[in-house]
Computed example of a mutant assay.
Amino acid sequence: MTKLFTHIRILTVLFIIVLVLSGVTVFPIQTELKLAVDANIFEDGSTIQLWLAKVLNGVENTKKEYPFLFYGFDWLAFAHIMIAVLFIGVYQHPVRNRWIIDWAIITCICIIPLAFICGSMRGIPFFHILIDCSFGVVGLIVLLIIQNRTSKLKKYRAKEKTNRS
């Protein structure tokens, strides 16, 4: 049982860390994009390189003309961090808080249609939509493992309780 509980906790901490990182990386978006474009990681004229340059240009122009729009980025970061805080409940009591895992699984599944619908409406390139979907898919895999381990832990605890009676 201890090994199962530890495994759930390790995966939950990993999930929390990734959520926080994906949130806080929103704050320096202009710096990150500039580094990516200036690093010349991608071949000149490649779809990815051209997309990054276009996004950087959009961010720079928006920051100069409409900096208040970045307030939405601040709220996006805040939401990621607060969702990560929610998972402290899973870390502490995974069986009692399995509803959080179920909610997060639904959320990860919903990322896919959101990315395709809104990404297409906003003119986001297909490769970038797939990158966004990958966050949902990877999160879903981790969460399904946590859910599976939590179900086993619940059964083990119920069996233990029955044996004590």
Results as ranks from 00 to 15, higher is better:
N40C: 02
V138Q: 08
G123P: 02
W103I: 11
E43L: 12
L144D: 04
A53Q: 15
L86A: 13
L86R: 07
A115G: 11
Q30W: 05
L56I: 00
P113Q: 12
H80A: 07
A115C: 14
F116A: 01
K3S: 10
C108W: 05
G139L: 06
N61E: 05
P94H: 02
S165E: 06
I48S: 01
T2L: 10
F15D: 01
H7C: 06
I106S: 03
L140K: 00
I112M: 09
V142S: 03
I105R: 07
F127M: 07
P125W: 10
F87Q: 05
K159V: 09
I81N: 04
A115I: 07
M1N: 10
V24L: 07
F116K: 02
C133P: 04
D132G: 13
I17F: 09
K54L: 00
T150N: 03
T25E: 12
R122P: 00
T47G: 03
C118Q: 12
T6K: 11
S22W: 11
L69H: 11
S165R: 07
I117V: 15
G72L: 15
P28W: 14
R96P: 00
N40S: 06
C110A: 15
R149W: 06
L140A: 02
V85K: 00
M82H: 08
N57E: 14
L35N: 11
R122I: 05
G139V: 07
K54Q: 03
I29E: 11
K159D: 14
W75L: 13
I146T: 02
K54N: 02
I145N: 09
K3I: 08
R98M: 10
L52G: 00
A36L: 15
L86P: 00
F126D: 04
F73I: 04
H93W: 09
N163T: 11
I146Y: 04
F73R: 04
G23L: 02
P113V: 13
N148F: 13
L14N: 04
W99Y: 12
C118R: 11
I106K: 03
N40E: 10
W103L: 14
V37N: 05
E160A: 14
D74G: 10
I10R: 12
S120I: 09
F15Y: 15
D74M: 09
K155P: 00
F78P: 04
N97A: 08
K159G: 08
I117N: 11
C108A: 13
S165W: 04
A79E: 08
